[in-house]
């Protein structure tokens, strides 16, 4: 019987059909998905902080409205993804607890500080650009609710990336000081953006099984290469350079060659040693704890309304 179920699961996945919430699935598949989708959801929620940092100091009402809409989208993306994890039997409260206790991770990119307003533009262009590279193939991931959430998210990410690039183009048309600010920001974000694709394939422990289950569609190195190829002409059009002396076109490969990110730094930030790790989690914990009375009051109000409705009926 179990073999039957497993066979049906394998066949569904091989046929590029989707696995849906109430289907039988291997425990490992369920666990891997919960871990990956929760980590993704946490990244969206924590990702509101670096940019939220600039909402009150946006240089114009236009930029402020755009930034607000973008940060609100990140919240929405987190919610689509939490909703997907719940179809797998995860509990929302439990996921939030795991995040604020440091038992589940989020993307390390959000442990870097946003020092200038140019960072808002560079995050949109490079960080959201890298996220799009990662996420577009996930629209075809084997788990239905995850794939559907990714489709919604990808549509909205396109606005994020374009607003960032447009912001940078505007700054590049400004003063020398503004252009320097953009280049400085690119210098700081380029390597962390490349790290967003995860460790090199040879060291990526989860890749092989995830590819077999069609949760993951491309390897870390394939996506990283694709991102570099896409970004170089965009940098040229903008008038900035990437801080990599090894970056150059390789006509034989038909791709750009590029240097290796500092993986020691990557692992250090993953393990909690980044500039903002503690601040990000402390802020999330405070927001959650400060909101406790609102959640309780709303639940109490709902219970009271339900009783008085029953009485009136």
């Amino acid at each position: 019987m179990a073999d039957d179920l497993e066979l049906r699961f394998e066949r569904t996945v091989q046929a590029e059909a989707r696995i849906e919430p109430r289907d039988w699935m291997p425990d490992g598949y369920r666990k891997t998905l919960i871990r990956q989708i929760a980590q993704h959801a946490h990244s969206e929620i924590i990702g509101m902080q670096p940019e939220g940092n600039w909402i009150s100091r946006a240089p114009s009402l236009r930029r402020k409205a755009i930034l607000l809409a973008k940060v609100q989208d990140e919240a929405g993306h987190g919610l689509y993804l939490y909703s997907a994890t719940e179809t797998l039997g995860a509990d929302r409260e439990d996921l939030t607890t795991k995040l604020i206790e440091g038992r589940q991770k989020y993307s390390s990119i959000f442990n870097y500080p946003t020092l200038t307003f140019a960072d808002v533009g560079v995050i949109g262009w490079l960080v959201d650009g890298a996220a799009i590279c990662n996420q577009v193939p996930l629209c075809r991931t084997s788990y239905g609710p995850y794939a559907r959430a990714m489709i919604r998210i990808c549509k909205e990410e396109s606005f994020h990336q374009r607003q960032g690039y447009e912001l940078l183009m505007t700054m590049m048309r400004g003063t020398q000081q503004q252009r320097d600010m953009v280049q400085d920001s690119v210098n700081r974000w380029w390597w962390p953006a490349l790290m967003m694709f995860g460790p090199p394939d040879a060291e990526s422990t989860n890749t092989e099984q995830s590819m077999a289950w069609r949760i993951k569609r491309d390897t870390n190195d394939e996506l990283r290469q694709k991102f570099v190829n896409m970004s170089v002409p965009q940098a040229e059009a903008l008038g900035v350079t990437f801080p990599d002396p090894d970056l150059k076109w390789n006509p034989e490969r038909g791709q750009y060659d590029f240097g290796s990110p500092d993986w020691d730094e990557f692992w250090q930030v993953v393990k909690g040693g980044g500039v903002c790790n503690q601040q990000r989690i402390a802020h999330r914990r405070k927001a959650h704890e400060d909101g406790a009375w609102v959640r309780e009051a709303a639940a109490a109000h709902a219970a009271k309304q339900a009783v008085s409705k029953e009485g009136a009926a």
Partner: peptide, 23 residues
């Protein structure tokens, strides 16, 4: 389109508007 948590039906509708129909 998905799911969400809310204390009652009215709040569920408002949250659904904000989460699922921003565009």
């Amino acid at each position: 389109v998905g799911s969400l948590h809310a204390p009652d039906a009215e709040m569920a509708l408002r949250n659904a508007r904000d989460v699922y129909t921003r565009r």
